[in-house]
Computed example of a mutant assay.
Amino acid sequence: MLTYTPVSEAGGVGKTTTAATLAVSHARSGHNVLTIDMDTQNGSLTYFFGPDYDRGDPNIDNLVRHLVGRPKGDFYNLTHEVEAGVDLIPSHNMLEDLEEFLLNEKDQAENFGESYSMYHQLHRILREADIREEYDVVIVDTAGKAGPILYNTLVAVRNVVIPFEVTAKGEESIDGLDDLVDGLEQNINIDVGVLAIVPIGYKETRDRQEILKKVQNDGFPVPIVIGQRGSLIEGCWKQQCSPYKYIEEYRNRQRDYELTTLNKFDELSRYLEREADIGSPEVTV
């Protein structure tokens, strides 16, 4: 099974579009894919794929209720099929108060002499749902900053893919994320692996070449590099669909550089599948 989260401390680097594009790429190669939106921002996977769902309705069942042990229904009733065989568990506004909810659960457990880990709750509900029997790939779109949402994600998936702007600021964000993961590993005794660094919006300049080379020399895997594709990504957000669907249904002519971008994402998803030893059952073209 392949589980990971695209994560970055820097904003605007394509974290959500990376999650969505890789999810569809995995599905097009024949895998059953679950995406989970744990990002509190409106511009998240829930908006990107646009399922019929009211994230502000306090009465509907949602992921947060399951995280704090108060579900209103079965875990699999949370899923929506959104595109190309990709299932999505949408984000809900209750996520903004997740830390408070988890602290309350922790206090209640301790009052009864029970142990309670605030950061293992996503892992718990995925295990209880026997997620491995249903899905080959699980991708979580999560918060970029330290806190219970990110920690729950990392404990559950144990792997990160890091979208990366090849600048000094982007390099600093990798270092910051590396420190955060090290601290989390020490505090709750888990291992988190970096599956790939993904340079996005890359321009071939001497300074950027040096930064990219340094990242590689530091031992981080960089299987692909994505150039600037602003119009493609903007179109995807406008139409609320993956780049694959956008090119097939909303472009009146094919653009070679956009097809090259999709080929790069396919190359990355095959790389990630090989890392997890799940292979590709079939390829959809």
Rank of each mutant, 00 (worst) to 15 (best):
R70C: 00
R70W: 00
R70V: 00
P71N: 10
P71E: 07
G73R: 05
Y76H: 15
L78F: 08
T79I: 05
E81L: 12
E83H: 01
A84C: 05
L88N: 05
P90S: 09
P90M: 03
S91H: 01
S91T: 15
H92L: 07
H92Q: 06
N93Q: 04
N93W: 03
L95I: 07
D97M: 08
D97N: 12
E100D: 12
E100F: 06
F101D: 14
F101L: 15
F101H: 15
F101P: 01
L103V: 11
D107A: 15
D107H: 10
E114G: 01
E114Y: 06
E114I: 14
S115V: 13
Y116Q: 02
S117F: 11
S117D: 04
M118R: 14
M118A: 10
Y119C: 00
Y119R: 12
H120I: 02
Q121H: 06
L122G: 06
R124V: 06
R124S: 13
I125D: 05
L126R: 12
R127Y: 14
D130W: 07
V137D: 01
D141C: 01
A143R: 10
G144M: 09
G144I: 02
G144Y: 02
A146Q: 15
A146N: 06
G147Y: 12
G147R: 04
I149H: 01
L150H: 02
L150D: 09
N152F: 07
N152Y: 06
T153Y: 11
T153M: 11
L154T: 13
L154C: 08
V157H: 04
N159R: 04
I162D: 04
P163T: 12
P163W: 07
F164K: 01
E165N: 11
T167E: 15
I174V: 15
I174T: 06
G176N: 12
L177V: 08
D178Y: 10
D178R: 12
D179C: 05
D179I: 14
G183F: 08
E185Q: 13
Q186E: 15
I188T: 12
V192F: 03
L195I: 01
I197F: 12
P199M: 06
K203P: 00
K203W: 10
E204V: 09
D207W: 00
I211P: 00
I211C: 09
K213S: 15
K214W: 12
K214T: 14
K214G: 02
